[in-house]
Design a protein around this nucleic acid. Sequence first.
DNA 1: TATTATCCATCAACAATCGTGATGAGTTGG
DNA 2: CCAACTCATCACGATTGTTGATGGATAATA
Lengths: 323, 323
Amino acid sequence: MYSLDTDQLRTFLAVEQTLSFTKAANLVSKTQSAVSMQIKKLEENIGKPLFVRLGRSIELTPEGQKLVGHAREIIDASNRAMAAFDDEAVRGNVYLGTPDDYAERFLPSILAGFTESNPLVEVSVICQNSWELRRHLKSGELDVAIVTHAHERGNSELIRREPLLWVTSARHNVHTRDPLPVAVATSHCDWREAAITALEAQKRNFRILYSSHSATVVGAAVLAGLAVSVQPESALRPGMLVLTEADGFPALPDAEIGLERGLRQKNAATEALVRHIRQNFDAMPVPDYMDSISHVTPDTIGRPAKNFAVCEDNVKKRTVNCG
Amino acid sequence: MYSLDTDQLRTFLAVEQTLSFTKAANLVSKTQSAVSMQIKKLEENIGKPLFVRLGRSIELTPEGQKLVGHAREIIDASNRAMAAFDDEAVRGNVYLGTPDDYAERFLPSILAGFTESNPLVEVSVICQNSWELRRHLKSGELDVAIVTHAHERGNSELIRREPLLWVTSARHNVHTRDPLPVAVATSHCDWREAAITALEAQKRNFRILYSSHSATVVGAAVLAGLAVSVQPESALRPGMLVLTEADGFPALPDAEIGLERGLRQKNAATEALVRHIRQNFDAMPVPDYMDSISHVTPDTIGRPAKNFAVCEDNVKKRTVNCG
DNA sequence: TATTATCCATCAACAATCGTGATGAGTTGG
DNA sequence: CCAACTCATCACGATTGTTGATGGATAATA
C-alpha cells in the first residue's frame, strides 16, 4: 500500500498556487531543483503526470487538478492534527462581518491563508453593509468587521486605501446619456454619498436608476450597460471601463477600508485574525489585468485615457490566475 | 510548518491496533527496530509521548488516543487519493444486508479492513433478520447478505460454523426455574426453531417469555437474568454463562453463517466485498475472554462445566482490546 | 535576428535519514 | 530461576533529499 508523502503534497500545492517551480521553491523554503525532483517523485508515485511543461510556463494536467482537492484535504487534516498537539495553538471561533463585495474579492485568499496557520479557529462570516455591521459590532454579535472607513465615526482602523473610480461598460456608452443613469448602493453608503455629492457639485444632470444592497449586483448592472457607478480599483472587472476627468467625470475621494472591533471581550482567535487581515491587506496585489484597464491614479488624472477596452488576452489571463 | 509523515502514521495505527511494536512491524512489513524508531520520531515531531511502555506491554497515552482519529483521517484521505488515480481500483457501491447481531460483532472490523483496501467503494448496510434479507435479495434491493445458512433453502454459501449454545446470566439462576423462561427471536429464525425443537424433544417444561427481532436485545434479556436463550459462540459476552448437558440442557445443532447473493447484475465492487468477507470470516479469531467462559465444543460436551463466571480481569481485557 | 533573462531538467557530490540485523536491558510466566 | 518475549539502542549500509552548477528551451526585448 503506497502512501502519499505530505512533504511532496505541500510543495505540489505551492506549485499549484504559483504555477512556477521557482516561486514554489521559495514558498516552501527549498531549492528549485528540490521542487523539481519532488514533483517528479510525486508523479512517479501516482503514475500520472501532474503538470504539462510548456517551455517556460507550466499548467496542471487534469490529473493534477484532481490531486489538488485530495492534497488540500490531507494537508488540512495534517495541520489540524499538528495544531491539536500544539499547546500554543490558537483555538476558538470568530464572528467576522464584511460587505458582500469585500467578501467576494478578499475573503477567499485571506481565509485560506488564515486557516492554514490557525487550523483550530472557526471563522463565521456575516455579510451586510457597513452600517449594519457597525450595529452588530455594538450589539456584540460580531467580533470584528471590515467596513468602509469613516473618520468621523472614528472607531475603525484604516487598513487599505484605493482610488474610487467611475466605471461604465466597455461595450456600451451609457456614460454619454443625459440624464446620466447611475447605479449605487441602497443607503448608508459612503460611496453613494461621494458619487452624488460629486455629481451635484458639477451640476450634472443624473438620476439613480439602479439601487441595490449588493455591490456585486451594482457591478453586474454596470457590465450590462444599464448605468455607470463608482467602484474601488480592486473591484474593477474585465469588461469595465474607467471614466476619468477627460471624459468629464468628477474626481472622487479615495475609497478607504477599515477594520472595526466589536465590544466583545478580546480573545486570542480574534486577535490572530485581525493581525492576519492587517498583513494581508497590506500585501494584497493588484490583479494582472489591471494594467490594461485605464484607471485614475495621481499621475493619470487629467491625462487622456488609453487602452479602454479590456482585451480578450487579459480576460483569459485573469481566469487562469484566479480560477 | 511541520508536517506529519504518512508512513509514520501508518505504523502508528498498526501499533495502535496490535498494541505491540513487534506485531505492528509485521503488519507494515518492517523490522521491529524500524517501528520503534518511527514511533520515536513521531513522538518527537508531535512533542508528546504516544505510548507508555509498561515493561513488556504498551498502552496509548491520552495524546496517543487523540492522534488515532487524526491519523485515520489522514490515512483514509491518502488512500482515497491514491485509489482515485489507480485505474484498476474498484469503484461503486454495494448494498449489504446482515442481521443486527452480526452487524455488531463482525461488521466493524470487516468494513474497516475493506475500506482500507477499497476506499472508493461505498457500502450501505441494511439490518434485518435472515428471512427479510432473503426477500430483499430476491427483489434486487440487496447485492449480498450475511444470513443464517440453511441447506434446504439452498442458495447461500457457508462461510462460518460455530457451536450454538444455551446461555444464561452468570449472576442469576433463571436456568433452574420451571417452567424455563426462554428468550428468542420473533419469528423465521432457525435458532429459535432449534431451541424449541430441542426442548420439546427433551419434554422440558418451558415458555417463551421474551421475544424480540433483535438478537442484541435477546442478549440483554439474558444478561438481566430474565430468561435463558441460545446464542452462537461468538455472541457470548462477559457476564454470560454457558449451560451444557451437565446442567441438563440439550445439545443444539451448529450455528451456520452463510453468504447469499442477490439477483442483481454482478459488479466488481460486490465481488470485492464478497471476497473480503469470505477471507475475514475464515480468519476471525475468538475473543480473548472466550477462554474463561465455559463453552460447548466437540471435546467439552458432556464434561462438567468449569470457570463459569467471567472474572473482572477478563472483562477489562476485553474492553482494552475492542475499545 | 540577436540578445538577454527566465524557466525547468539534470547531474555530481555531499549530507541526512532510514531500515536492517545484532545486541542488550527489562519483564513475564512457568 | 530460566526461557521466552518485548522494546530500545547501536553501527553500518543503502537510500533519499538537498544543494549548487550547468544546460537546453522559451519568451521578451531591442
